[in-house]
């Protein structure tokens, strides 16, 4: 799992590359915790490069979203592949989060 960071307007865009599963989520969670400590509030996850997500990946996303709530932050998604969308819908995550076809529309507040 590779994670690139880029500030775009109010949002920090995290571009994920690889699989979001039980093996890779500890790295993802550690990076997110650091960003939250540093004051990040608005996050877009660019998932164009994520080809697989398991319940461990969903869990880490939900944990991040829960941590952003008390600081009035927001978590959005861009460029989600159909394989990830399928798991999102199966687990009712599509109702929790806003998803966008591209990063440009995801960073508009």
């Amino acid at each position: 799992m590779q994670i690139a960071q880029q500030q775009q307007g109010d949002f920090l865009v995290l571009t994920l590359e690889g699989e979001l599963d039980a093996v890779t989520t500890p790295t993802f969670e550690a990076i997110c915790d650091k960003l939250l400590e540093a004051g990040t509030r608005y996050v877009v996850l660019d998932l164009a490069g994520v080809s697989f997500i398991s319940s461990a990946g969903l869990r880490s996303i939900l944990i991040l979203a829960k941590k952003l709530r008390p600081v009035q932050g927001e978590l959005r998604f861009a460029r989600m592949q159909a394989v990830v969308t399928e798991v999102f819908v199966l687990c009712g995550f599509d109702a929790l989060f806003s998803t966008f076809p591209d990063v440009a529309s995801a960073i508009v507040r």
């Binding site: 398991s54 969903l58 829960k66 709530r69 199966l90 687990c91 929790l96």
Partner: peptide
């Protein structure tokens, strides 16, 4: 699994077996 609560109330567990069942 809880598939309906909002972010604050939704527990983080139970999704793995939910996926397998489905």
């Amino acid at each position: 699994p809880d598939l309906e609560s909002d972010i604050d109330d939704r527990p983080v567990g139970g999704l793995g077996i939910h996926i397998v069942r489905n």
